[in-house]
Write a protein that binds this DNA or RNA. Structure first.
Lengths: 127, 127
DNA sequence: GGCATATTCAACCACATGGTTGAAGATAGC
DNA sequence: GCTATCTTCAACCATGTGGTTGAATATGCC
């Protein structure tokens, strides 16, 4: 069985659920950068960006190498793999999306039929 | 350019960042189910599960068909596609994970060399 | 040593989240 | 109509989140 209770996935998906953090990852995919460089483009304080970086670090998506007074951050994309794997299980379902809708309609039909059996005069199409 | 500011991605990743919700999605991938059926296995109140379902609905991952007094929920995996696409950009980076570490080490080496140039007596290997 | 730079830490704030409880809506069935 | 069932709603609570500010830490440079 596939495990849905995973602190690793919790952390990764939570880290990705914020546009600032996704943007940070994108920039880090170009090259390792210092906290100050990463913070520059944002309308945020340095401390604010620092917090976001800690969330990314907690998810294992950013590695930090302290060099003197600057902290060089670099991307580590490996934890994303688990996330993609988790999501890919559902690929079959978005490929079958029409079937999903159909199963829903069929369920409604079954319910309607059952309802009709028990109270034939109700909720029928125009007689 | 890839867009990192996306309320759609915010909602999907946030919805996935909780093990209860991932478990709900997994169960819905087997078959559409009512709220009561979905709530049964959890040590949660019905209202609690109802809230989780609303988060999933807000992300577009669950569709609801009200049939009388029961609400039949079904999976809609399509929003996951955007999430996978976003993540797949990073596949190149987890395939190159050794390069990432290497670039980090190289950056450290450059910094060490620079430092050595400016203060040759410091931080050298055993002389 | 002394000052500037890079970054974090701690405290605080407003607001969201995950959870509960108890009441309120709908609907099914008698 | 009455009652039981399925579900949500509203209020509340504790905690987490995203953000700020100001002080603290650590390093680099003269």
């Amino acid at each position: 069985m596939v495990e849905d209770s995973s602190p690793q996935l919790d952390a990764v998906f939570h880290a990705l659920a914020d546009p600032t953090r996704r943007s940070l990852l994108r920039r880090l995919s170009q090259q390792p950068q210092s906290v100050g460089e990463l913070a520059a483009p944002f309308a945020l304080t340095l401390a604010g960006v620092s917090k976001h970086l800690k969330v990314l670090e907690a998810a294992g998506l950013v590695q930090r190498s302290v060099q003197g007074r600057t902290h060089l951050c670099s991307l580590d994309a490996r934890p994303l793999h688990a996330g993609v794997e988790w999501m890919r299980y559902y690929e079959q379902f978005w490929n079958q999306r029409l079937d999903v809708l159909q199963s829903l309609l069929e369920a409604e039909d079954r319910a309607a039929a059952k309802s009709a059996r028990h109270s034939p005069a109700k909720k029928r199409r125009k007689p």
